[in-house]
Nucleic acid binder design. Structure first.
Lengths: 324, 324
DNA sequence: TTGAAAGCGTTACCAA
DNA sequence: TTGGTAACGCTTTCAA
């Protein structure tokens, strides 16, 4: 690979001059510039980004830490981040943390050692301190790590209430909730939103809320159990789409028809949700927008630009399909 | 961030010595080593990977180029690549190419400029020349770019035949095929596998093969059309799972029951396929293994180790579920 | 308008 | 067993 020296030699100028035309910075004579550009073309020269990074202490790269890219929520997010980053000239390093504190810290370290300009992270376990010590702009996404840190989340509670109310309006008179894991902020919020709507209903009891793990297995099991103990249930709000699908499967196993005998609504709006038969009614998050916004905000932060707002709570939208 | 100089100063030795203990290379006295380690701990020193990369002309990073991480096939692949890379001490840069030649070349350039040690790529449009000019180890995955380049694919044709034969054994007497896009190697192969089994059947005609685009929309449309012109069809082999799901949807729209009146089988074994009701019978590819194998092979290549085989064709497996 | 040279943080060679 | 130093490829300051 040709280096800046080769270009300089061929063009008969100094490396400083080449650097100037490369970066379009400082004075360069018209003729000199042409010579240099010619040489660059001739050698098919491309600047070495590593050397640049070393000097600049920045690598034009941003780190993206997600729990698990196989979780259907994250590919769309990752795509948005990559698209946006790319638009601004940044590359993306992908890190799967498995919500494991050690892995998270290891990745944080590596990213720092690689001079990433910024980091986007989705985590429940990370602490504000870990982030502050990094001394690198970080935007937290989907899950709030700490007030004060730049964060982009969605209206979990509002969406959950909306979902629950929607089921009531559809005529459901016994609505259960399959909640997400204990300790996960958005699971708590969604549960809270459900609770807000039903808590004063005469039929409501705590046993209408069952634990799920944001995956299909846990949900199938929970739903089976739920429908056995509470055959009167005619509506289920699941805290995410995967669990809603699990609930549909459980109902199917029990020969309960959806939506005729049991209405089911999910949360997230992942692509999966339009794949089932019947298609799932759900609260859709603007996933792509989430990633996009996080990235543009991060870019501003990295450029030390004035960033007005550092906390966004994006709105969600109920999309009615055929499961309700 | 502390640098090697700071460590050297604190330990009262030269940077050369620090470098030696860091890399466990060359002679270092026992006592000296302890001093240095102490200093490292004290300063919480972590070597600057960018400086290392510059010197080594390698960045301990591998590039992963996929058409679109939102395509459900790729997250699992990406995960496998990341896991394996991580195990060997490499980071992964994620690139979505959209099968766009320009984007692909741009990414190839950036990766090279960033001194990635190697690249894993899934592409139909890339040429062998593009790769050779790079002068970096590249493994092609899922799709073959050129004989001679390290490649990992699966038994597309065999799997397709197996799927088709399976439908016949299930009693289907008119089997159609929704094929993938023209020009995509694995789509061709799968179509070939289907053809091999049915071509001498008396009922077979070319109109039993319809074009799809590896996505759900195209498949719904194609299936609708297909079932209208050929109401006698009682079995469909779709070239991937998404299209198989599309076929299920189309059947559902027409009030045709799956599997009673129409058996459907897919190809890929993405997670989605177990989410539908009924669950999809499909030819599952070892996606994770694909990514894992590609990465280990790439690592060997990067280390200039003897790599016996550079072409793998992994086996696929028919998993029977409820759509057949 | 241009060039020389220092510096970014490492590693590895050669000398001591 | 250790240290000095050139080199990796670039940017930027300062002088010319």
């Amino acid at each position: 690979m040709a280096s800046i020296k080769d270009v300089a030699k061929l063009a008969g100028v100094s490396v400083a001059t080449v650097s100037r035309v490369l970066n379009d910075k400082g004075y360069v004579g018209q003729h000199t510039r042409e010579m240099v550009e010619q040489a660059i073309k001739e050698l098919n020269y491309k600047p070495n980004e590593v050397a640049r990074s070393l000097f600049k202490k920045q690598s034009n790269t941003i780190g993206l830490i997600v729990p698990d890219i196989m979780n259907p929520f994250f590919p769309e997010l990752a795509r948005a981040v990559e698209d946006t980053a790319s638009k601004f000239g940044y590359n993306v390093i992908l890190c799967n943390s498995d919500e494991d504190r050690l892995k998270e810290q290891a990745y944080l370290d590596t990213l720092q050692q690689n001079y990433v300009n910024g980091i986007i992270v989705s985590s429940n376990t990370m602490t504000a301190n870990q982030i502050i010590e990094l001394n690198i702009p970080v935007v937290s996404i989907d899950r709030e790590i700490s007030k004060g840190l730049p964060t982009i989340v969605v209206e979990n509670m509002k969406g959950a209430s909306e979902a629950t109310r929607f089921l009531m309006n559809k005529g459901c008179s016994r609505i259960a909730h399959i909640r997400g894991p204990q300790g996960v902020v958005n699971a708590e919020e969604r549960c809270e939103g459900y609770r807000e709507v039903v808590h004063q209903e005469s039929w409501f009891s705590e046993s209408y809320i069952v634990d799920g793990d944001y995956d299909m297995e846990s949900s199938i099991e929970a739903t089976l159990e739920l429908l056995k103990t509470h055959p009167e249930i005619d509506g289920i709000f699941a805290a995410n789409d995967i669990m809603a699908i699990g609930a549909m499967k459980a109902a199917n196993q029990l020969g309960i028809r959806v939506p005729e005998e049991l209405a089911i609504i999910g949360f997230d709006g992942i692509r999966l949700s339009s794949v089932t038969i019947p298609e799932l009614t759900t609260i859709v998050q603007p996933i792509y927008e989430l990633g996009e916004k996080a990235t543009t905000m991060l870019v501003s932060l990295m450029n030390q630009q004035e960033v007005g707002q550092t906390y966004y709570k994006l709105d969600v939208e109920l999309i009615e399909r055929n499961s309700t």
